[in-house]
Nucleic acid binder design. Sequence first.
DNA 1: GTCTATAATATGATAGAC
DNA 2: GTCTATCATATTATAGAC
Lengths: 203, 203
Amino acid sequence: MSGATTRAHIVDAADQLFYQHGYEHTSFAAIADAVQLSRGNFYYHFKSKDDILDAVISARLARTKHMLEQWEAEEVDPACRVRKFVHILLTNRVDIQSYGCPVGTLTTELAKLRHASFAEANGLFTLFRAWLRDQFVLLGHDAAADSLAMHLLAFSQGVATLANAFLDEEFVRREVQQMCDWLSAQTATAERGVHGRHEQTSA
Amino acid sequence: MSGATTRAHIVDAADQLFYQHGYEHTSFAAIADAVQLSRGNFYYHFKSKDDILDAVISARLARTKHMLEQWEAEEVDPACRVRKFVHILLTNRVDIQSYGCPVGTLTTELAKLRHASFAEANGLFTLFRAWLRDQFVLLGHDAAADSLAMHLLAFSQGVATLANAFLDEEFVRREVQQMCDWLSAQTATAERGVHGRHEQTSA
DNA sequence: GTCTATAATATGATAGAC
DNA sequence: GTCTATCATATTATAGAC
């Protein structure tokens, strides 16, 4: 097997295991088992476990960037794009109920470990935050765009955490519905703001 | 030192360390260091690390129960009580920014570990959930009370996770303010419901 | 009730053969 | 590029002295 391919396989397996069992709880042995490789051989591809983590984060960043670009390509209406974000809670519901949000749970774990890669992992949040902000700017919420983006991120994290804790599908559907309703109201407000009166400042 | 006292000290230290660094990342050595005791002596008080976890969860459950009773004693108005819950995000803001929510982060970690004590840890969420539900019932939201309780829990988890990720005090204050405003609107709705028309069903 | 060994295991990481 | 040892360390847990 070529070096690049093996490396990609390792990153893939580590990505899944870090998500499912957490970074610290995932041992080299577990990754080796998943890719059917000897432990020793790992160090040909990565110099340490932290190195694998960095590779996993890079892969997630690239994948997320690509997904957000896809969303922009698929939907021209920024309101629809934002709804697409809200709906990942349903799209990934089963995994979220089992393992929580891959972004939130990794960030939380690395924060507790005071891990050097905390900032890189947080870059995943920043990617979503900036993308959502852009959509809200397009919707006319200039000053409040970033606050709205953070509000949506908080919503998704809260729902993911409780979905994982209570394994309650109805709860997830209800919250997604409520958020979509709220978004429609916000969009209507922005429209009025654009056409009629000045946009309110954030906070 | 008496057995009961030493045991309480161990639980205290473990409680803090589990919160600050996570359950798995906290070693016996770290707890021993904190309470100035030899590793070996631990097994006189607890038969395993999981046993300490159970003791920590029990302590947290008792402490939380007591706190909720205090809140009920201090405020007669259920709306004020609910606001008290929302305001823990400000009361514990510094710790939350550093380590996240003690309930949410433990539950998330134990879920990933598929740990036997996951259900017990989740009891902390259930405690808040039931208490909040009771307050909303008192406010006249009979059918929607549990949904509202879950909504508030999700809110607090989302804000805590992002506060931990972005260390943004203004974000926390803004979200707390928004939630309090939303609660006032909900309370007003319930009042109208009680005096004028039938309460809406959940969902 | 607390201590000092010490066992048993698992981990991240290295060396060197093929 | 992959393997089989092997190391050093850290972990949970036990045994037995005081």
